[in-house]
């Protein structure tokens, strides 16, 4: 009953927003409709454009490319983050020596790297994958590092008393502990992989959702920009849903699955 009420309220907010948008652009209230529609388009036009994109099938190619870039960026970023997170957590000296450089690299706004990556890797998917990688890597790296270092000392002592050697400890204690932390940041890191892909496309490419939006922007096609944003949102929600399902499956042993990232 309560849930139903909540959903109704949520839908009401969305519809209210669309209605406001529609009224303000369809009738000359604030300014002539020609003018408001040029700047804000109208909700019906945007929906019609989204429908057309999907109906014509044109958008699938772009979605596919963005998805591929996102997956690759996440896979490489997570792989690298896990590897180095483990290494640094187990080798105190390494962590201490590289600490300032890692902090500096992480502090850098990654967007400034995009042109350089375009130069190095071309305008194809790999420059976008590289940008996503730099975003995902640090999130996973810091989480895995933390996870390995904060393994419960009692669980560790117990495992050692059971006679486990370093390799067995790695497999049964450190690895699962690190994975837990990585999965707790799964939403954030997948989100950043997507950000990397879209921003990369936006700054220079010939395909993908970011490219679509940029293309529409360059000819002042506001309807196209909004349509691209709507499609991007749907895409993000779907990806997030998949992540939630994966997470629920993998963290079955946890009391309550966490639903947000590191925040």
């Amino acid at each position: 009953m309560n849930r139903l009420k909540l959903i109704l309220l949520q839908v009401a907010v969305g519809l209210g927003f669309l209605l406001l948008w529609h009224v303000l652009t369809a009738y000359p209230i604030l300014a002539p409709t020609r003018q408001t529609q040029f700047f804000f388009s109208t909700p019906l036009d945007v929906l019609a454009r989204v429908w057309k994109e999907f109906a014509s099938g044109e958008i699938w190619r772009h979605l596919g490319i963005t998805l591929l870039e996102t997956i690759l960026a996440f896979a490489f970023g997570a792989g690298g983050g896990i590897l180095f997170g483990f290494l640094f957590a187990r080798r105190e000296l390494l962590a201490a020596v590289f600490d300032p450089y890692i902090k500096a690299a992480n502090a850098l706004p990654r967007v400034v790297l995009a042109p350089i990556f375009a130069l190095w890797f071309g305008l194809g998917i790999w420059s976008k994958v590289a940008l996503g990688f730099t975003l995902v890597f640090f999130i996973v790296f810091f989480n895995v590092y933390q996870g390995v270092r904060e393994v419960s000392p009692v669980v560790l002592a117990n495992a050692r008393m059971l006679g486990m050697n370093e390799r067995q400890l790695l497999r049964h204690v450190y690895w699962p502990a690190a994975l837990t932390w990585m999965f707790s940041s799964l939403h954030t890191s997948v989100g950043f992989a997507l950000v990397g892909a879209v921003v990369g496309e936006y700054l220079g490419s010939s395909a993908g959702l970011g490219y679509k939006i940029h293309e529409a922007e360059s000819v002042f096609d506001v309807t196209g920009v909004f349509a691209g944003m709507v499609i991007l949102s749907i895409f993000v929600i779907l990806i997030d849903l998949v992540v939630t399902l994966v997470e629920r499956r993998l963290l079955v042993w946890r009391p309550a699955p966490s639903t947000n990232g590191q925040g």
């Binding site: 419960s152 009692v154 669980v155 002592a157 049964h172 204690v173 699962p176 042993w253 946890r254």
Partner: peptide
């Protein structure tokens, strides 16, 4: 304290 591996 609890010393079991919570993921097993």
């Amino acid at each position: 304290q609890d010393a079991l591996m919570p993921w097993k």
